[in-house]
Design a protein around this nucleic acid. Structure first.
Lengths: 183, 183
DNA sequence: TCTGTTACCGAACTGTTTGTTCAATATAAT
DNA sequence: ATTATATTGAACAAACAGTTCGGTAACAGA
């Protein structure tokens, strides 16, 4: 990739994430973004079709590679997760979230956390579907499977939300315990 | 209230809820609303400061009175809920949701259900806080209280979301069982 | 170093949306 | 009937979205 392209793209993402921690996505204008990124208007539209696509690509850059790496590790080194799954998988996830250059942390603690957690949830459901047999099925075994998956996903999301709202004081290990205790 | 005012207000709400079931709130313009409501532009702004305030007032009209009535019944006739709380409270809620003139149903099954369930959740947490001692505390008793409340609220919301996504085929009684089984 | 390619700039431009204003008209309240 | 108020339609400035294009700077390969 051209160095110029890369720099502009990074400048746009940086400006955009800054703005997201200040105001609603809905009220951020393209003008705001190009002012803060210090680039021309035409340049922005050369990179992203609309503001919505910018959000989409940011989310993919943030989350999808996490899940991809997760799935790869899961299939390549299945033994790692099978020793005490699903604990390892979610511990892994919480660790990723807690250290990703503080970029994810900023976005998740801002006004728009629902926005990102929505994207997050979509990927999460697939992951949980694979892990489902390893979950303790004592209590809500009688519930429909798709319902159970969504419940676990929303519990995970709510756990993350509570975690970041309280300043992420707990260790990933503790939070994993909380999550597994709740689900 | 002036009959003219009331009629315009209703026309705006009707047009707005129609549009909400068709496209994202973000992409609905004031022009769309006044066209469908068949009113003048100046009239819209005489009623609502912005599009966001219209959404806010719609949510209040839809949800807040439900919770108000709930809280009143709860304080006036405490015995009703104490016989087998928290079942009654949430059964009550599910019943409300399933029959409110199909207006709530439309909105909750549309593209913008996250939007409304967000408003919903805020009120829900207060209700759950009152009902908390009546919940089965066997499993996740060790978790922080505020965390437990948010978990229960998000489980309720996720239950509603799954319910409407599947066409609300289950009776309120069944869904209440599902919810209490999951929480 | 030279050359063709590609990205960025910035300024202008069209079309859309927002929110306001105002005089004229219609409806409600007393 | 008279007064008060809601609605209308049109026009308006300001903000915003998305496009176009000629000129400039940075890149990659020979």
């Amino acid at each position: 990739m051209d160095r110029r392209q890369r720099k502009t793209r990074e400048a746009i993402f940086r400006a955009f994430t800054n703005l997201l921690s200040e105001k609603d996505f809905m009220h951020i204008t393209v003008g705001d973004i190009i002012d803060r990124a210090d680039i021309g208007r035409a340049t922005f539209y050369a990179h992203f079709e609309t503001k919505d696509f910018l959000l989409k690509e940011l989310c993919e850059e943030l989350f999808c590679h996490i899940f991809d790496s997760m799935n790869n590790e899961h299939s390549d080194h299945r033994h790692i997760f099978n020793c005490d799954a699903p604990k390892s998988v979610f511990l892994h996830l919480f660790r990723h979230l807690s250290k990703n250059d503080n970029k994810i942390l900023d976005l998740l603690s801002g006004r728009n956390n629902e926005l990102f957690l929505q994207y997050f949830k979509t990927n999460l459901c697939k992951l949980i579907e694979n892990q489902l047999p390893t979950f303790n099925a004592d209590k809500n075994n009688s519930l429909p499977t798709d319902f159970r998956i969504k419940l676990i996903a929303s519990t995970f999301v709510e756990t993350v939300r509570w975690w970041v709202a309280n300043g992420m004081k707990e260790t990933p290990e503790t939070i994993t315990e909380y999550f597994l205790c709740a689900v």
